[in-house]
Amino acid sequence: MQAKTVERTLIAIGVAFIALMLILPLVTILVYALRQGWEPFMDAITNDYAIKALNLTLLATAITLIVNTGFGLFAAWTITKFRFRGKQVLTTLIDIPFSISPIIAGLVFIMVFGRIGWAYPFLDAWDIKIVFAVPGIVLATIFVTFPFVSRELIPLMQAQGNEEEEAAALMGARWFHIFRKVTFPHIKWGLMYGVILCTARALGEFGAVSVVSGHLRGKTNTLPLHVEILFNEFRLTAAFSVASILVIIAIVILILRNIVEYKLKQEES
């Protein structure tokens, strides 16, 4: 009886907390977005700048995904299937983006590629723009979402060990064959999980991107930055409308995440 009460109280606290901290703000966004009806909402999200910002955010996210999935696979493979000196250092280095403030991440790129950065004379000579242009935004997004995929894969691959790969190698399988037939089926869902987390973070990244963006509307403005601009221009309805796009994408991602998590559990059992 007593245990039941404790359980119920804990559940009630948990639900209340989540409702207050997560559900309420999200609902608020949608309410504010639609407060003045459907038309201002549609105007805000079909606005030229909003669409360009959405495109830029999607472009940056797509490139980030390609790069970080590739890198995550390599890193996890290297760290779990080989033994070498400095492995611990490498593992720690991969995690840097998790512990560093995104502002610092942005500033680092400014200090390297900006006009006062050491790489600038070279870039200027070739007329390449990195910071305050699209490549800088992509780089900053890659930086902050760097560890997601490898973080998911490393424990998974570590738990599996090398035996199956070694057996396949002994039987004369080529390495890509080994990867496709032996390693990949095991890590498939873990990889998906990492990719989804990475997507969610990349879409919403604000801090690092804000530093390297230059905030040029229609040019270097991502969707989260566009929300800030609208908010600062007293256009609250528009700001919340655009924010609701991000919320909807986030909810879709959340659902995908749960499906993948379920598959992952099935695989484990």
């Binding site: 490139i63 790069v67 007329d127 390449i128 723009k129 990195i130 242009a133 699209v134 490549p135 992509v138």
Partner: peptide, 13 residues
């Protein structure tokens, strides 16, 4: 990756 970055760099221009 390097090629990608170099490719998108001149899009602006």
């Amino acid at each position: 990756i390097a090629a990608l970055v170099l490719l998108i760099a001149p899009i602006d221009a």
